[in-house]
Structures are given as C-alpha cells and as structure tokens.
C-alpha cells in the first residue's frame, strides 16, 4: 500500500468524522454537506450572515476543496455566492492566513504564526471566515480584491451598500 493511498484514507476518515460531527452537533451559522456523496474531499457549506453585521440575513454558499494530505495541508475555500470583500478574490476564493500552506513563501508579508496548522478543523476554518465577515473595518493591506479594498478606503458607505445588496440577493437566491 503506497503512502499516498494511506494518507488519503486517513484524510477520508478524518473528514468523514468532522462532517458527521458538524451534522450531529451543528455550529450556529454553519451547515455543511458533500457536493457529491462519493467524494468526501469536496464540501459545500452554507454560512448564515452573522447578526449585527453587513451580512446579517444573508446565506452564503461556498465550496471547500480538501487536499488528500488534509489535515497536514489546508483546504481551499471558494464562495459561490457573489461576495464583495477585500480578502475575497473576485472569483470567490477566500484569502485568509489560516488557509495558507505554512511552507509557501508567496504570502511572506504575513506572520507565519497565523498560517495553517494540522490542528485546525473545518469548524475552526469556518469560524475564522465568519469572524472575517463580522469585522466592520476589513483589512485592506495586500488585498485579494483590489477594487473592494480601494472602495473601503475611499467610499466606505458605497462599500457597505454594495455588501448589503449582495447579502439581500443571497437571501433571495437561497429561497428560490
């Protein structure tokens, strides 16, 4: 049995357990499931906009793609619901430090101490994303979405308005 296979078995079992855990004891504001029941590495999650934030009332769908090395390496997260945020790429990709592989240097500007650790779980990832959305003043240093970052700096009211509109639209889309 090759190493890759045993590692994928390990990530499969860990992911299965975490999914079961999340479904048995749901965390407030999070629901999780598989895109395809035969592929444990592709998750679809729904985040409910945290109350008292711009995202309140919104339903934000995202995909989690886990590598076979999980939990040694982090998953990738990508919103399907259109988002407007300096730390979310225009294509929906989420750029937060705990999702960055600890070894690559392309994010050299951020402190390595915030990057991925094998001790993280799906739940801890999603909670970090919720806390990212809850922040009133998004960090605009080294943004993933430059336009959004510029708007935060120059036209905060316009930025808020745009986020509110997307949140409303996401709620409508969810009910369709």
């Amino acid at each position: 049995m090759s190493k890759a296979q045993s590692s994928s078995t390990q990530s499969n079992i860990i992911l299965k357990r975490q999914l079961m855990e999340l479904q048995k004891r749901p965390v407030e504001g999070i629901s999780a499931g598989l895109v395809d029941d035969d592929n444990i590495l592709e998750w679809e999650v729904m985040l409910i906009g945290p109350p008292d934030t711009l995202y309140e009332g919104g339903f934000f769908k995202a995909r989690l793609s886990f590598p076979t090395e999980f939990p040694l390496l982090p998953p990738k997260m990508k919103f399907i619901t259109p988002m407007w945020h300096p730390n979310i790429y225009p294509d929906g990709g989420v750029c937060i430090s705990i999702l960055h592989e600890p070894k690559d240097d392309e994010y050299g500007y951020e402190s390595a101490s915030e990057r991925w650790l094998p001790v993280h779980t799906v739940e801890s990832i999603l909670l970090s994303v919720i806390s990212l959305l809850s922040s009133d003043n998004p960090d605009t240093g080294s943004p993933a979405n430059v336009e959004a970052a510029v708007q935060v700096r120059n036209d905060l009211a316009g930025y808020r308005k745009k986020v509110r509109r997307l949140a409303r639209q996401s709620a409508e889309a969810a009910w369709d």
């Binding site: 590692s7 390990q10 090395e69 040694l72 600890p102 390595a112 101490s113 650790l117």
Partner: peptide, 13 residues
C-alpha cells in the same frame, strides 16, 4: 507525516 510536509511542531511551530 506532518514533519514530512513541514518540519515544525503542528501545535507551536
């Protein structure tokens, strides 16, 4: 396997 990916302690780096 964690050390093979990254030679750091997965808890305190």
């Amino acid at each position: 396997s964690a050390i093979a990916v990254l030679p750091q302690c997965p808890i305190d780096r």
